[in-house]
Deep mutational scan, measured.
Amino acid sequence: KRPMNAFMVWARIHRPALAKANPAANNAEISVQLGLEWNKLSEEQKKPYYDEAQKIKEKHREEFPGW
């Protein structure tokens, strides 16, 4: 399985609240909304998620060399 990128790290945190706020929305609609919200963030706001994604990527590389 591929390691999460910065957007996926961010979305994992924000998806539950968005789903709760929009109970009639299906998963595809929630994903679209998450994408729109992510694109509104500044690079500075995204930086912690890029940092976390890098850590996940490095850990994945250690656990699965050659993947």
Rank of each mutant, 00 (worst) to 15 (best):
Gly66Cys: 12
Gln33Asp: 04
Asn5Val: 02
Tyr50Val: 09
Glu44Ala: 11
Ala19Val: 11
Glu37Phe: 06
Ala11Trp: 01
Ala28Ile: 05
Ile13Met: 12
Pro23Cys: 04
Asn26Ile: 05
Pro65Ile: 09
Asn39Thr: 09
Trp10Gln: 02
Ile30Asp: 01
Gly35Arg: 15
Glu63Pro: 13
Pro3Phe: 06
Glu44His: 15
Lys20Ser: 10
Ala19His: 10
Ala21Leu: 12
Gln54Ala: 10
Leu41Cys: 01
Pro16Ser: 04
Ser31Thr: 10
Gln33Cys: 06
Leu18Tyr: 13
Lys59Pro: 08
Asn5Cys: 11
Ala19Asn: 06
Gln45Val: 05
Glu63Gln: 06
Asn26Cys: 09
Lys1Arg: 09
Arg12Asn: 13
Arg12Trp: 04
His60Glu: 10
Gln54Ile: 04
Lys55Ala: 12
Arg12Tyr: 04
Val9Asp: 03
Asp51Ala: 09
Glu29Asp: 13
Ala21Ile: 03
Ser31Met: 08
Phe64Trp: 12
Lys46Gln: 08
Glu52Trp: 06
Pro23Asp: 05
Pro23Gly: 03
Trp67Phe: 11
His14Asn: 08
Ala17Tyr: 07
Lys40Pro: 00
Glu44Cys: 12
Phe7Pro: 02
Lys40Tyr: 02
Arg15Thr: 05
Pro65Val: 12
Val32Phe: 15
Glu43Gln: 07
His14Val: 06
His60Arg: 14
Asn27Met: 07
Asp51Val: 10
Tyr50Cys: 15
Gln45Thr: 01
Asn39Tyr: 02
Glu29Ser: 04
Glu37Arg: 06
Ile56Phe: 07
Lys46Thr: 02
Ser42Cys: 03
Gln45Ser: 07
Arg61Ala: 13
Asn39Ser: 10
Gly66Arg: 11
Glu63Tyr: 05
Met8Pro: 05
Phe7Lys: 06
Ser42Tyr: 01
Lys55Asn: 08
Ala53Met: 08
Trp10Leu: 01
Ile56Tyr: 13
Leu41Gly: 00
Asn39Leu: 04
Ala17Glu: 07
Met8Phe: 10
Tyr50Asn: 03
Ala17Leu: 15
Ile30Gln: 04
Ile13Phe: 05
Met8Arg: 12
Asp51Gly: 04
Ser42Ala: 05
Leu34Val: 01
Ser31Asp: 13
Lys20Tyr: 01
Lys20Asn: 14
Glu58Trp: 07
His60Pro: 10
Ser31Val: 08
Leu41Ala: 00
Glu52Ala: 05
Trp10Phe: 11
Arg15Tyr: 05
Glu43His: 12
Glu43Pro: 14
Val9Ala: 10
Ala6Gln: 01
Pro65Lys: 10
Asn26Thr: 11
Arg2Ser: 06
Lys20Met: 13
